[in-house]
Write a protein that binds this DNA or RNA. Sequence first.
DNA 1: GGAATTAATGACCTCTGGGTCATTAAATAA
DNA 2: TTATTTAATGACCCAGAGGTCATTAATTCC
Lengths: 212, 212
Amino acid sequence: MNQKKNEPSVARKPRRRKEARPAEIVVAGIIEFEEHGFAGAKLSRIAQKAGIAKSTIYLYFESKEALFIAAIEEHVASVMGESEAKLFSEEGTTRELLLGLLQNMYARFVHGEAQALFRILLTEGDRLPDLISEYHALTIQKGSTLLKKILARGLERGEVRPGPHLEIPHVLIAPAIYFAVHKMMFRSAQPLDFEEYFEAHTDVLFHGVLTG
Amino acid sequence: MNQKKNEPSVARKPRRRKEARPAEIVVAGIIEFEEHGFAGAKLSRIAQKAGIAKSTIYLYFESKEALFIAAIEEHVASVMGESEAKLFSEEGTTRELLLGLLQNMYARFVHGEAQALFRILLTEGDRLPDLISEYHALTIQKGSTLLKKILARGLERGEVRPGPHLEIPHVLIAPAIYFAVHKMMFRSAQPLDFEEYFEAHTDVLFHGVLTG
DNA sequence: GGAATTAATGACCTCTGGGTCATTAAATAA
DNA sequence: TTATTTAATGACCCAGAGGTCATTAATTCC
């Protein structure tokens, strides 16, 4: 059973790691999956990005699909984790609370790492219904719940006018998502100026839902 | 040079077409590309959808990439073609004009065929800068120009308040795009109710930019 | 220092999928 | 009816990518 193939040759440079490897592979994987999608991603390129051999990936992940899922899962957790509890601080005017929420959203989806994740899930989400649900819960669900609270509080304080937006707050943050989408599609063709856009968004939003 | 391979066998059913074929292949291709992206799309599956053999595709298209580009180009033209000139009819209140524009947008991007195209370009646009530019010109560019006109007219008539939205009208139609994106990602998880959403959108929009 | 362990490797296997081509049969011409 | 043209086919080719495995060398254990 022992044929004499695999005569390896000389000179390799295998310094050890171990705990670090999986994370490195995941990082390289995220980049590759974001650039090429699942089908277009190549394990050889991921390995290259991570500075290892292709076969090394299989020491830590069972398959391309397994790596994909692990990578997305970790990214969902790490990117969407913290920093939402303090947003609803009960202090400040409704205007200030909304402004803080929007700044947070733009920071995440337009400037931050969440954009890559957003793009991957938008593209490849059909194969990952569970992750989509989790992502939905961590972003849209959580965000709109928070928004509803802010609006309800504002209504009590007389700062927010009544209307259907109290139940469908998505409409209010939609321009932020639109900006992210626009950036993904048209960043080469015709980029939007962020400062102007942000001002237009808040301006319309405030005039649209605030009293006075 | 004449080896005796390809001993074909019996019984096929090749009734003729000819002018119809390319269009059929394009339709099957659009569906396949929308479902699986460029890299994930299989010519065998496209052929199957079109009811022909895989090799028949090569009678009409040079390669997978050529088919892809031809398919997208045709779809951009056919889906985005007509029906925008009459939107700005100079008659009616600003409110009515805006309402008409929004209904048109939702009809295209949420209910109509433009959604598939939108998804493909969002996913695969990086490889097609020219098509992206064309698409941008036909949709965003044209739409925002029209919106600016409506708003400018409204400003003159005293129906629209001044503000940064006059220059960045994207903010006003963003919720429609958001709805389409939400539908693409979360249609299984948590679909939005269209009627409610549309009402919230128009309500916030009108309060946000109209006077009185 | 030597043996056992194990992180890492690259040659190799296999199969899928884009692409080619000789052959077939329906349509058309003669 | 026969010959010619051509739309269509399926067998085939082959590169590339996912995945496997015997081998290697750094590390650890004694």
